[in-house]
Design a protein around this nucleic acid. Structure first.
Lengths: 345, 345
DNA sequence: TTGTATGCGTTATCAC
DNA sequence: GTGATAACGCATACAA
């Protein structure tokens, strides 16, 4: 009807005014306080609905210890792994009446710090973070005073518990599988060693190679982006001394590798065997199916969340300054069709 | 050093106290107010850092019109399309100093309402929403008074602008492509018609079929989940009268369809041609590449965000009650190897 | 250049 | 059962 209705924004005092009550009573009525007359509650609520009253969250939060949100700081939301984690956390948060504040850092320490700061300013009830390789000093300070849990990556300078993947186990299992299949010339394409998970994966590869007296130095390390592995695999496979098998150190790298193989017109497992890392739905659909290291995403997501929320609802327990042992989740090798038995040649 | 350091929580008054200043001065110093002595600013900031002062966001928000967050309400974060959107919105939000509050509804109207309410309570600066098929009455009311934009789906009862895909165009192009290739027996596997986008896609298929005098009723409609299309395609392809081509109505359905074909040991494009919907990175890597309808994700994400933020920073303009025409973004057909020319037989 | 007083919307404490 | 009043932490209009 009216043309300019810029929502007058209703407060409990407004309700109190038009109802001839005090704002205290209105507040109590809305909160279903035991000793408010039933009829009063009804009247208050009726008007509240009619006028479209919505409580002001800021005002409410100002009184409590923390805000109604939990933060999730991850490097990439388009990555299947993190998207799954986000889903799990979103569900858990919603179930307990928390909001989910998402930060996508792209592994940029600046952004990590800015978004974290915003979370601290908002007095987030809890924070789940996959720290960048080199967080800024401020980030560490900010985090130290917060209720947080580390996910996937662990920065040793942080006092918080960490939920990580047993990367050593994952890559070593993949490598061992290929060795068992008779491969001797195996290359590893993985992420840099600035992060412990990159180091662990590399170590898993090298350990198994050395254990079998094979060359552990056929290795390409770089950023976890498809472009890098595309380039790396292209180089590896266009040389004269081609490896007969490839072990991948991340799902993004797996994508790039597959693209490279395709551009070189190389078939797998015929021309080269390959074991992926991670297990998005489509790995199963590729060719004869991609043999891969499956990460226990669901379990990890559920666990970090419960870990965080457990402490969220309790009086903050600052557990010593010692960096606690991380909870390691074991990946499993999914056997499909991308690794073949090498017949002596 | 100390064992029990439960962070005393520092406020500007605390700073003011130990500095022998008034909290006003501290406030101004922190805000870099022009007429505060440079030296004072320095002292204040030094102490602030030392004591780990962090402003209280709730208190700050209480004074302004809205909180520092923008909300994104989507049905699924594991879906490539929405994950891309989330990325775009996260970037834009971070760039402008907003936080991103993510809600994953799973198309559950209850959850949609709860999460939306939380956003309203938090006085979110703006909201991007992909509404469920049947939002609750409350949801509509809550939304009506908010600064919001609809994405992908448009609920006609809502007064907000909508940014959608030209679904009719997408599916009709896919269908036409197959017809041009000589297919006459084409089936469409799509989403239900409770949403306009589902209706548009179906209409696109039927229109082209009818236009060419072909049977427009080879259709399977259901939930946008892989399980549904797996089942549907399995049925379609095990019957005696197999279609020679399949048009898919969503990316999840495309996944299920591919799984079904694999389980039936059917090759594409040899045994059946198929055109997907959406274009996650891996479509390109499947077999000879999946011919598909590419959605302009980047553009749409950038556009909704700019649309929302433009109004966020301006004085709220309530533009009439009439439901405005949606901005339609045209998809494009990506020709790869999953559709083949049918030689008369 | 700095300080005083006030208000934002709620809830909690103490009356009555 | 209900109502004054204070307090949460911050920013600003208004002095000084």
């Amino acid at each position: 009807m009216d043309t300019v209705s810029s929502k007058p924004v209703v407060t409990i005092r407004d309700l109190a005014g038009t109802l001839g009550l005090s704002h205290t009573t209105v507040s109590r009525a809305l909160a279903d306080h035991p000793k408010i007359k039933a009829e009063t509650k009804l009247r208050v609520r009726a008007l509240a609905r009619e006028l479209g009253y919505v409580p002001n969250g800021s005002a409410q939060s100002m009184r409590g210890q923390h805000g109604p949100t939990i933060g999730l700081i991850i490097p990439d939301i388009q990555n299947d792994f993190y998207a799954s984690i986000a889903k799990t956390v979103a569900d858990a948060a919603a179930a307990r009446g928390f909001q989910l504040t998402l930060s996508v850092t792209e592994d940029n320490p600046e952004r990590e710090m800015d978004d974290l700061r915003a979370l601290i300013v908002a007095r987030a009830a809890g924070i789940i973070i996959t720290p960048t390789a080199s967080p800024k000093a401020q980030t560490l300070e900010l985090l130290a005073g917060a209720n947080a849990v580390q996910l996937v990556r662990q920065d040793e300078r942080l006092p918080h518990e960490a939920v990580v993947i047993d990367d050593y186990l994952g890559v070593s299992a993949a490598t061992r599988h290929l060795v068992t299949y008779g491969h001797r010339d195996i290359a590893y394409v993985g992420t840099g060693t600035d992060l412990s998970c990159g180091r662990d994966r590399l170590a898993g590869f090298r350990a198994v190679m050395i254990e079998h007296g094979l060359n552990p130095d056929r290795v390409a390390l770089g950023q976890p982006r498809p472009e890098f592995s595309h380039h790396a695999v292209h180089g590896l496979m266009s040389g004269s001394q081609r490896p007969t098998a490839l072990v991948m150190g991340s799902s993004s790298l797996t994508i790039g590798a597959l693209k490279a193989l395709r551009s070189l017109n190389l078939q797998w497992p015929e021309d080269v065997s390959i074991v992926g890392y991670g297990d998005p739905v489509w790995f199963e659909l590729m060719g004869s199916g991609l043999t891969t290291v499956r990460l226990p995403v669901q379990e990890m997501g559920a666990y970090v969340t419960s870990l965080l929320l457990a402490r969220t609802e309790l009086p903050r327990v600052t557990g010593g300054d010692a960096c606690p042992q991380p909870s390691r989740f074991a990946p499993s090798l999914v056997l499909r069709g991308s690794a073949r038995i090498l017949t002596a040649g």
